[in-house]
Design a protein around this nucleic acid. Structure first.
Length: 562
RNA sequence: CGGGAAGUAGCACAAUUUGGUAGUGCACUACAUUUGGGAUGUAGGGGUCGCAGGUUCAAAUCCUGUCUUCCCGACCA
């Protein structure tokens, strides 16, 4: 493409409303433009990049045997009522009515429609397995859109759904997708981790997430320094080790005005890990007191699962006052509320805890000193904890969720009546998997991982153009005619070439080409008198001078090795 | 939804405290000089100061309301 008379524009300064590196660079490069919070226009340079990513995804989907379909975004609400998802998805779904006041939603995810689509096809076990997918807009009413394309309210997602007759089939379909995903992210040159994750409102048994490692990631990844264990913090298992310390005698001590773990531990000179943290929570309008090690945090997600609760919030004064708990001095000994303890607490000895009496704590408390209703893994892993697989040390990284794999099972097929007849003429529900991948998030992650002070550094596989070309002096006829010829030569060989033929000073062109991150730059300048042009890679400081006749070959080699 | 910040030319900002003709840089137009890393000079064009009320002789500036955006948190397949 030639830049003269194109839509191309860039911004010279950082933009006000984009704090994230990727959001700022995407806007500055003229690739996207904000319309509202979490809503963007995709402009030519940005759309071209998205198309490159999409093409790779489509190729790998085809290799995995998945067929593409397209579902509507505007969907009658009733489709989401059948599986109880109007309630499950709650406020994150956009609702609207038609002129006859019939309720509709903008599709936030499409399990129901894909299940219904499968019903048209599936009668017998011989019709299975198959996988279909779409590349379409999703709408989610996010409470807080942020970080450019990372968390938006309308976005393009590739979502695939597999249909199998049994668990083995699901495993096979799931693994095919996993291989496709590995290929996709490898081709996109993304630094990623695959982590075990929560199944959330999707339901199902197994979920794995593809997480792009970046500092602005909204998820905390738990990784092991000596094996390949990788988990989302949401579900990472805490392994407690018992010190087998000899138990001492329980003792009541005065701790006037020392309420927080920090204050008490300092006052009594006891490490926070030797204190017990009490969390007074409201679980379905009942007071439940959770006890965890003093230096840990309660994992609401785990707690919800343990109690089979939908929601857990902090308890209000009314609930607390109905018990003998004294905030700041709450302990498990003789506490008259429902008590749930972290299983790690059972390995703790001679710890400090509240005495349920204003201004007093116990020291040398032990598990035998109190009763509890439930025990389970309810706290967050800390850095330095023991790996549940190999015993190594755990550490954290931040990640952006760029893809996920779910084993859905029969949740949707049962509710929507997607069944097949097996070899013995028995009707059975189809077993499903679903596999999502966010195109915009991938673009944002690539930029977060590949940039410098001058702008984006795209890998060849995603760059909107593989090569850019410019003549230093647009008034020099020789330079221009050589550049024109090179452009024609490269285009005719099928390369994606951006020819900056604008009547601008060279500095402007260099800066712009750097900003939008084109991997290879060919500069036609003074050296044409020796039949040479300059070729520079975006991610390198130096350049090479090569003969004009060798340019096509050089480009060809560069593109192929990338 | 809680806490914080901000809305002034296409972009980034100043002027608001102390009310009195709306300014700077970039971008844009014309001309000249420049031409290997966002040129320089001269002359120009471009604004319902987010919106709606109010106070005042007079409001970008003070008051009230409202909308929007960003950041932290809550939340989030």
């Amino acid at each position: 493409m030639k830049l003269k008379n194109s839509y191309f524009y860039t911004l010279r300064e950082d933009v006000k409303d984009e704090e994230s590196i990727s959001g700022n660079l995407l806007v500055r490069a003229g690739m996207i433009k904000k319309v509202g919070a979490g809503i963007y226009m995709y402009l030519p340079m940005g759309l071209k990049t998205m198309d490159k990513i999409r093409a790779i995804v489509k190729e790998e989907m085809a290799k995995a045997g998945a067929e593409e379909v397209l579902m509507p975004s505007l969907i009658p609400s009733e489709y989401y009522e059948t599986c109880g998802r109007i309630e499950a998805l709650g406020k994150s779904m956009f609702h609207l009515n038609d002129r006859f006041d019939k309720p509709f939603v903008l599709g936030p995810t499409h399990e129901e429609l894909f299940t219904i689509a499968a019903k048209s096809k599936v009668r017998s076990y011989k019709d299975l397995p198959f996988t279909i997918y779409q590349m379409a807009d999703k709408f989610r009413d996010e409470p807080r859109p942020r970080y450019g394309l990372v968390r938006v309210r309308e976005f393009i997602m590739k979502d695939a759904y597999s249909f199998d007759k049994d668990e083995e089939g699901l495993d096979a379909s799931y693994n095919k997708m996993k291989i496709a995903y590995n290929n996709i992210y490898d081709r996109l040159k993304i630094n990623y981790k695959i982590v075990k994750a929560d199944t959330g409102v999707m339901g199902g048994s197994l979920s794995e997430e593809y997480q792009a490692i970046t500092d602005i990631g909204e998820d905390t990844l738990v990784l092991c320094d000596s094996c390949d264990y990788a988990s989302n913090l949401e579900i990472a298992e805490v392994i407690a080790k018992d010190s087998n310390e000899e138990e001492k005698v329980l003792e009541l001590v005065e701790t006037l005005h020392k309420e927080s773990i920090e204050e008490v531990s300092k006052y009594l000179n006891i490490a926070p890990s030797k204190c017990l943290k009490a969390m007074l929570m409201n679980v379905d309008n009942e007071l439940v007191t959770f006890f965890i090690r003093g230096d840990r945090e309660l994992n609401i997600n785990k707690a919800c699962k343990l109690l089979k609760a939908k929601e857990i919030n902090f308890a209000n004064d009314e609930l607390i006052n109905a018990s003998n708990a004294v905030p700041g001095f709450t302990g498990p000994i003789n506490l008259n509320s429902k008590i749930v303890i972290d299983r790690e607490v059972l390995t703790m000895h001679n710890f400090c805890c509240g005495a349920n009496k204003l201004g007093y704590h116990y020291i040398n408390a032990n598990p035998k000193d109190f009763k509890y209703d439930l025990v389970g893994d309810i706290s967050n892993v800390l850095e330095g904890d023991i790996c549940p697989v190999c015993g190594g040390k755990l550490y954290f990284k931040k990640g952006i969720e760029i893809g996920n794999l779910f084993k859905l099972g029969t949740k949707y097929s049962e509710k929507l009546g997607l069944t097949y007849l097996d070899e013995f003429n028995q009707s059975k529900p189809v077993i499903m998997g679903c596999y999502g991948l966010g195109i915009g998030r991938i673009l944002a992650s690539i930029i977060e991982q590949n940039h410098d002070d001058n702008g984006i550094i795209f890998p060849v596989s995603v760059a909107p153009y593989q090569v850019c070309l410019l003549a230093v002096d647009p008034k020099n006829e020789e330079q221009v005619s050589i550049a024109n010829k090179l452009y024609e030569d490269l285009i005719s060989k099928g390369f994606d070439v951006l020819y900056d033929d604008r009547d601008e000073r060279p500095g402007v062109k260099f800066k712009d080409m750097d900003l939008i991150g084109i991997p290879l730059r060919i500069t036609v300048g003074k050296k044409i008198t020796d039949n040479k042009v300059e070729v520079k890679e975006r991610n390198k400081d130096n350049f090479v001078e090569i003969n004009i006749d060798d340019v096509v070959n050089y480009v060809n080699q560069y593109i192929n090795k990338s």
